[in-house]
Write a protein that binds this DNA or RNA. Structure first.
Length: 494
RNA sequence: GGUCAAGUGGCCGAGCGGCUAGGCACGGGUCUGCAAAACCCUUUACAGCGGUUCGACUCCGCUCUUGACCUCCA
């Protein structure tokens, strides 16, 4: 499998440091607000990577952090902790906020069928480790203490190692373009960043440290927790493109500073951003959509609610390194496509290869199906091109529907190819893409029962009743299919 | 201003130096008590201008446009 490594700006063959084990770390959410559509993208994408690596036989340890302390908000509340700020607004304990939004994040990710990572460490749970790590960097003389705060010395680091290797930034250019911020006077250099910040009297979240009461810097937690659980060097580090600089750049610097220059990560992966109607999503732009709003259709920009699986499918229909634009039209198209795919999934699970001896093997059909299956995995192995992979599923779906309409035609392909297609189609959708039917077995049984009455009415040519039942199905987003071979139901794609 | 991406048919969205992406929408047909679904057929492309090449949507240059990062952000 090849993956695009931001470090080299190239697709590279994926070779774990210690096969069959794979260590993967992804930057998780800052839990001070409701999860938004931008949070869904990395969660879903790296979930598919996690699933696919396991499908390929790797033993993956997946770590995704919860940031519950330490990130600055913006200039107006400089130096203030996001969580603490929110806590003041809502007059509650910071940990209450953290807990609330962590729960909400996990709940919505569960809905999106995002598997929980193997380890979900929190920044507040690793204060000691962060203090120790800061000490290690101080011991290397690559950080300095000012006024109870500890800053990373980018210039000193630059003497020994290279700063900017991930983002391609040149230190001198950075310095020329840095704008004036408060608190800069404590730094020797504007490019320096905090490892430990002294807490002001009104700051609520604070811990004791060798340098006084304070809280950890903004980039430190990821370095500390990734290396704690995955080792000094590990395979994959992921996150949104916006984290490339400065966040991930600083992570590399911190890790190398503390570990004699060892680069911490072999493959850096970054997903692209989400836009709304072609614009960057931002609170100030009024197009900020939370996942809750998307699922309930309550945002003014949304015409309707979209189901969790529609959202998941929508995200995967684009390649992860392209921007993805959320619009009603695009979401609606994804909803229809998703239902079509799921209808195919229901069909293929029930399909059986005919018993009869007479075969009418068709080289062309056989070849096409093999080609689709082949391309399916080639697409995944080429930097996880889920868009191209899904296109193959639809190609297969066309064949499956043909066989469904005309079961005797199944013998156009060999039993072996049929079995492979059936297995791959189901496994790929459910296990790798993590897309599933949004329905319970109980409901399905009720649908089947009602369909039984439809069949009876049909047999007695009671068309009034037939139409009534059909209308009832339609109301409940289901359709009845009258086929030559029998009667069946499916999800309405409208 | 600096750095980096991208501009594909009505919409979304892949891809490649010559061979159908796919989804949604549109049009025609098959099937049907009437439908729906499904299937079959069909239409609309690669921002502009140059260059390299036997041949470019695909490579190079310029122009225009959009976006991201440079400051918390997935």
């Amino acid at each position: 499998m090849k993956l695009y490594n931001t470090l080299s700006r190239k697709k590279e063959l994926f070779e774990p440091l210690e096969p069959p084990f794979v260590g993967m770390y992804v930057c998780g959410p800052t839990v001070y607000n409701d999860p938004h559509i931008g949070n869904a993208r990395p969660a879903v994408f790296f979930d598919v990577l996690y699933r696919y690596l396991q499908f390929l036989g790797y033993k993956v340890r997946y770590v995704r952090n919860i940031t519950d302390v330490g990130h600055l908000t913006d200039d107006s509340d400089r130096g203030e902790d996001k969580i603490a700020k929110k806590a003041k607004l809502e007059q509650v304990e910071p940990m209450q906020i953290v807990n609330k939004y962590t729960n909400r994040y996990l709940a919505v990710m569960d809905k999106l069928n995002v598997l929980r990572p193997d380890i979900a460490p929190t920044a507040t749970g690793h204060i000691l480790e962060q203090i120790e790590f800061t000490q290690r960097i101080l011991n290397e003389n690559l950080a300095y203490v000012t006024n109870g705060s500890v800053y990373f010395d980018v210039h000193a680091y630059q003497q020994k190692y290279q700063y900017g290797e991930l983002s391609g930034r040149i230190l001198d250019e950075l310095l020329a373009n840095t704008r004036e911020l408060d608190g800069q006077e404590e730094k020797r250099n504007p490019a320096d960043f905090a490892l430990w910040k002294k807490a002001t009297p009104e700051h609520i979240m604070r811990w004791n440290s060798p340098w006084g009461e304070g809280f950890p810097g903004w980039h430190l937690e990821c370095t500390v927790m990734s290396t704690k659980y995955l080792g000094t060097q590990f395979d994959i580090h992921g996150g949104g493109m916006d984290l490339m600089f400065p966040h991930h750049e600083c992570e590399i610097a911190q890790a190398r500073a503390a570990n004699k220059g060892k680069p911490p990560v072999k493959y850096w992966l970054h997903n692209n951003m989400v836009t709304v109607n072609g614009q960057k999503m931002g609170k100030s732009l009024g197009n900020f959509i939370t996942l809750e709003e998307l699922l309930t259709g309550t945002h003014p920009l949304l015409q309707q609610a979209y189901s969790p699986m529609t959202i998941r499918f929508f995200i995967l229909q684009a390649h992860y390194r392209s921007t993805l634009d959320f619009s009603n039209e695009a979401l609606l198209a994804a909803q229809k496509a998703y239902k079509r795919l799921i209808n195919g999934l229901r069909i293929v699970k029930k399909m059986q290869y005919p018993e009869s001896q007479t075969t009418n093997l068709n080289e062309k059909a056989e070849g096409e199906i093999k080609q689709y299956l082949d391309t399916l995995f080639k697409a995944m192995n080429d930097d996880l091109n889920t868009a191209l992979a899904i296109a193959q599923l639809f190609n297969l779906l066309k064949k499956i529907n043909q066989f469904y309409l005309n079961p005797t035609q199944i013998t156009a392909i060999s039993q072996e190819t049929f079995a492979t297609m059936q297995y791959v189609f189901v496994t790929f959708i459910e296990q790798i893409l993590g897309i599933q039917e949004e329905n319970t077995a109980e409901v399905t049984k009720l649908i089947e029962a009602l369909l039984h009455f439809y069949k009876e009415a049909k047999e007695t040519k009671d068309y009034a009743k037939v139409d009534k039942i059909r209308a009832y199905f339609k109301e409940n987003k289901l359709i009845i299919k009258d086929l030559k071979t029998g009667i069946d139901w499916a999800y309405d794609e409208a």
